[in-house]
């Protein structure tokens, strides 16, 4: 029970401080899940992101469910997911009930101007960390660069990127095994 409560609280913290969707969440996940609580390794978190990318549903929720399940089975999955959505539920309900034009307040806009800059810095930091842990050879450099360009400039669906890059990983493995 104590473990489940802890899962709930940690994911509350993650949900409550994620601005701008699933990707912005990764720096906090790394800190809370990988470095502080050791509930998953960095590789597992990345794999889970990849899985979350091409399965239905919200990526943040998929990640919470995955880590919760890995740590404490189905009750863990439910506790982590509940934690992840709880801050949204409270904050949005209050806004829906009381503030009609929340984003019209100047203070809110200025605060978010600053927050967006911090989010950019955090994401850059995450990409550097991921680069260090996941790009091991030329194939990695090519896949990283191609994925970035495909999504940022060409507008290819992330699902395609996930499918093609994992196929490339498997094909390379088969080719290398044959050569040896």
């Amino acid at each position: 029970m104590k473990d489940l409560l802890k899962l709930f609280v940690v994911f509350c913290r993650i949900g409550g401080f994620t601005f701008g969707g699933g990707y912005a969440m990764l720096p906090i996940i790394q800190r809370e899940i990988v470095e502080k609580n050791h509930w998953a390794t960095e590789e597992e978190v990345i794999d889970c992101y990849a899985i979350g990318q091409c399965t239905p549903g919200i990526i943040a929720v998929n990640t919470a469910t995955f880590i919760g399940f890995k740590h404490k089975g189905i009750p863990g999955a439910i506790a982590a997911t509940a934690g992840m959505v709880f801050p949204s539920f409270v904050i949005i309900s209050v806004i829906a009930a009381y503030f009609k034009h929340f984003q019209d307040y100047a203070v809110v806009n200025h605060a978010f101007g600053g927050i967006r800059v911090a989010v950019t810095a955090l994401i850059l930091n995450t990409v550097i960390k991921l680069w260090k842990s996941s790009v091991k050879d030329w194939l990695g450099i090519i896949i990283f660069t191609a994925s970035f360009i495909a999504v940022a400039f060409v507008g290819i669906s992330p699902i395609m990127v996930v499918v093609i890059s994992s196929a490339l990983g498997v094909i390379t493995k088969i080719v290398r095994t044959d050569v040896n």
Partner: peptide, 17 residues
């Protein structure tokens, strides 16, 4: 599969950034 996938996820997050 995941060996090929991980650099791609880093690229995807870079694109989001």
């Amino acid at each position: 599969g995941f060996y090929g996938l991980r650099p791609a996820v880093a690229g995807l997050i870079g694109a989001a950034g």
